[in-house]
Write a protein that binds this DNA or RNA. Structure first.
Lengths: 210, 210
DNA sequence: ATCTAAATAAGGGTATTCCCTGATTTTTTA
DNA sequence: TAAAAAATCAGGGAATACCCTTATTTAGAT
């Protein structure tokens, strides 16, 4: 029997995961905590094999909590729960010894797979993020559901925008019309799901396109 | 019997809400949709009284979807599901005629209360967000030691800009004049040495201000 | 209590981005 | 070689950002 505990300040997530795991043989949810303090208080008594740990907690951040937990309970496997926006956190948590991470829009199968993986001593890294995070080298084989593939020209325009150039300046730099630059910019924004140039640069940096 | 449907691309949320409402008398979850398209396709057939609608959907945004839904099905009550980051969206959705909103870290009681409220024809606005909106909860930037000398307000404006909000939207979020927002933005750019908002966000991310 | 930094606000612009539409040419890929 | 993707260009207008200046009110520090 694998014992699971969850720390998340969203009751919805707590309920959701519990519900997902209900009826799964050999897995039992033994604890559900809403913040770091509660986790530290109750986890010893519940003695879970795995703790699913939300990164955004109200009291202290997931990084500090994971450090403390790993120090006190080195036998517990930690899986970070995260939205994909939290990439930088995840990186740091992995460095701190967290055993895996899951996107919050995970499904039941992945959840179970993650648990088996970390229990076997391996790291669990969902491959869609994994590619983005650790695979700095552009691996074109991966189905880039999350990493939008910009064309060469779009990439150039993106870089130019990130250099604070105006449309006019970019057009002069690349020897194309300002209208073309605008088209490229719109297409980049569309591909990245950004509402404006600020979002474009933010997302591009998070996805390591810059 | 109150019929509920849910639109959210996170299976966790779907499961969580369904699980929360299970066993509640007079409430039944009749539909669960993962995106806007599915919602539009299936909602007529399911004919829920209330739709819980996530604001961040993969295909189109919650604002557009709520507009469409309210036009086609004016009798349906819409409750926006949101993280607190989405304050500006919520405002716009309320303007569009949405009947209430819930934080995703809601609990069962609030959920049920929200439903009863909107069914009675009133708006449901959870008071914790209300307080947040009114008080302008200071963002927790405890470790401001390393950072350039941005003031608290500048920090808030910076974050808002990074969330792709316009000057107008930021002014509504922070309850200050658009001109003040512009002043803050100018001062931030000046402090960071950026030529425009793009540079501002880029530098801010590099300096880990975001 | 006084001084100072911060936050607020506005006028009056100019520059730039954003958005939609529609289109032609070039390059890559199946 | 045909089809698809990429790159090119444009008009026209709305929305937003950018810039400089000045000024009052508020809050924090000595």
């Amino acid at each position: 029997m694998i014992k699971i505990a969850i720390t998340d300040d969203h009751p919805l997530v707590l309920k959701g995961i519990t519900s997902m795991l209900e009826g799964t043989p050999n897995i039992k949810v033994v604890g559900a905590y809403e913040n770091a303090m509660q986790t530290l208080e109750k986890i010893e008594n519940d003695s879970p094999d795995i703790l699913l740990l939300d990164i955004n907690l109200p009291d202290i951040n997931g990084i500090d909590l994971s450090k403390q937990l790993l120090k006190k309970f080195p036998e517990i496997k930690l899986i970070a729960l995260t939205n994909f926006e939290d990439v930088s956190y995840v990186k740091r948590m992995l460095k701190n010894g967290v055993h895996g991470y899951l996107l919050k829009n995970t499904d039941r199968l992945e959840l179970i797979k993650a648990m088996k993986t970390v229990l076997s001593g391996e790291l669990f890294l969902p491959d869609n993020i994994h590619a983005r995070l650790l695979n700095q080298a552009p691996n074109k084989t991966a189905d880039s559901g999350l990493k939008p593939n910009l064309t060469r020209r779009e990439q150039e325009v993106l870089v130019a925008i990130s250099e604070e150039l105006t449309t006019q300046e970019i057009s002069e730099k690349l020897f194309i019309s300002p209208k073309t630059v605008e088209t490229h910019r719109m297409n980049i924004m569309s591909k990245l799901g950004a509402k404006n140039s600020v979002g474009m640069i933010k997302i591009a940096m998070e996805k390591q396109l810059l």
